[in-house]
Amino acid sequence: MIINNLKLIREKKKISQSELAALLEVSRQTINGIEKNKYNPSLQLALKIAYYLNTPLEDIFQ
């Protein structure tokens, strides 16, 4: 099972779900679904998340 630290990292960087969704060009519901482990992001989306949060991919999804 993948450990998902997206919410923790996003909140630590003081970025809202809506702000991150806008940067990634996805819906806020997509971010919410990823954070609640209801949706697994594509590799492309996971890499974009890591880029915009300036955090290694391995720290977000373990």
Rank of each mutant, 00 (worst) to 15 (best):
I3L: 12
Y52L: 14
Y39P: 01
E58A: 11
S18E: 14
L23P: 00
Q62K: 11
S18C: 10
N37R: 10
I15P: 01
E25K: 15
Y51G: 06
S18K: 14
M1L: 14
R28L: 15
K7L: 07
K14L: 09
K13T: 06
N4P: 05
E35L: 04
M1F: 13
S27G: 07
L47M: 13
L6H: 02
N32E: 15
M1C: 15
D59Q: 14
I31A: 01
L6M: 10
P56H: 06
D59M: 13
I15A: 03
Q29N: 13
P41S: 03
P41D: 03
N5E: 03
L43T: 07
N37H: 13
K14E: 08
A21E: 02
E35Q: 00
M1Y: 12
S16P: 05
K38G: 06
S27R: 08
T30S: 05
V26I: 11
Q62T: 11
T55Y: 07
G33Y: 14
L24E: 00
I49M: 06
M1R: 11
K48D: 06
P56D: 08
I34C: 02
K13S: 08
L53A: 02
I9A: 07
K38A: 10
Y52A: 12
A46M: 15
K7P: 04
E11S: 08
S27W: 03
K38V: 12
N32R: 15
I15L: 13
R10N: 01
K13D: 02
G33I: 10
A46Y: 03
L20E: 00
N5I: 07
L8N: 13
L24I: 09
Q62F: 13
E11L: 12
Y52K: 04
N40I: 15
E25H: 14
I49Y: 02
V26H: 01
I60T: 02
E35Y: 02
S27Y: 03
L57C: 08
K38W: 14
I31H: 01
Y51E: 09
Q17N: 03
L23W: 14
T30K: 06
I60F: 06
L45G: 00
L43A: 10
L45V: 05
L43C: 14
I9R: 02
L23Y: 13
L23I: 12
L57V: 13
R10G: 03
L45S: 01
Y39W: 12
N4T: 04
Q29E: 15
P41Q: 01
G33W: 14
S16I: 03
L47T: 10
L45H: 02
V26G: 02
L23K: 08
Q29A: 14
Q62M: 13
V26N: 01
A21H: 03
L53Y: 01
F61Q: 02
Q29W: 09
Q17G: 04
F61C: 04
L23A: 15
I15K: 05
I15E: 01
Q17Y: 04
P41M: 05
L43R: 12
N54P: 02
T30G: 01
D59S: 09
E58H: 12
E35R: 03
P41A: 06
I3H: 13
L6S: 01
N5H: 09
N32C: 07
L24H: 00
A50T: 03
D59Y: 10
N4D: 04
I34M: 05
S42G: 11
Q29P: 05
M1E: 10
S42K: 06
Q17P: 06
K48P: 00
L45C: 06
A46D: 00
M1N: 12
S18W: 09
E25T: 08
L23V: 13
I2E: 07
K36F: 06
K38M: 14
K13M: 13
V26P: 00
S18T: 12
L47P: 00
A46S: 06
R10S: 02
Q17K: 07
I2W: 10
L45T: 05
L8M: 14
D59L: 12
L23R: 09
Q44T: 13
K7A: 11
L24P: 00
A50V: 04
L45N: 01
S27V: 04
A50G: 04
R28F: 11
I3V: 12
L57F: 11
K7W: 05
Y51A: 09
N32H: 12
N37K: 10
E25G: 15
S16Y: 03
F61N: 02
A22M: 13
Y52V: 15
R10Q: 02
R28C: 12
T30F: 14
N32T: 10
A22T: 15
I49P: 00
N4I: 09
E58N: 10
Q62N: 11
N4E: 03
Y39T: 09
N37A: 09
Q44V: 12
N32W: 09
A22K: 14
S42I: 04
P41K: 01
A50H: 03
N32K: 14
D59V: 11
E58M: 09
K38F: 13
R28A: 13
A50S: 10
Q44N: 11
L47E: 09
L53G: 00
Q17C: 03
G33R: 15
A50K: 02
S27P: 13
Q17D: 03
N37M: 13
L43H: 12
I3P: 09
I31M: 05
K7E: 10
V26K: 01
V26E: 03
M1D: 09
Y39A: 06
A21Q: 02
K36V: 10
K12F: 09
L57S: 03
R10T: 02
I34K: 01
A46C: 13
L20Y: 02
I15H: 03
K48L: 09
N37G: 15
K13F: 12
G33V: 10
E19T: 12
Y39F: 14
A50P: 00
E35V: 01
L6R: 01
L23E: 07
L6F: 01
I60P: 02
E58I: 10
I34F: 05
Q62Y: 11
F61R: 02
T30N: 03
L45P: 00
P41C: 09
I60M: 05
D59P: 01
P56A: 08
E35T: 02
S42V: 05
A22E: 12
I49D: 00
S27E: 06
L20N: 00
I9G: 02
I2C: 14
P41L: 08
L23N: 07
K12H: 11
K12M: 14
K36D: 12
Q62D: 09
N40A: 14
L24F: 00
L6V: 08
N37T: 07
L47H: 09
A46G: 06
N40S: 14
E19C: 09
A46F: 06
P41N: 01
D59F: 10
T55N: 03
Y39H: 10
S16T: 13
E11H: 08
I15V: 10
I9H: 06
Y51Q: 09
T30E: 08
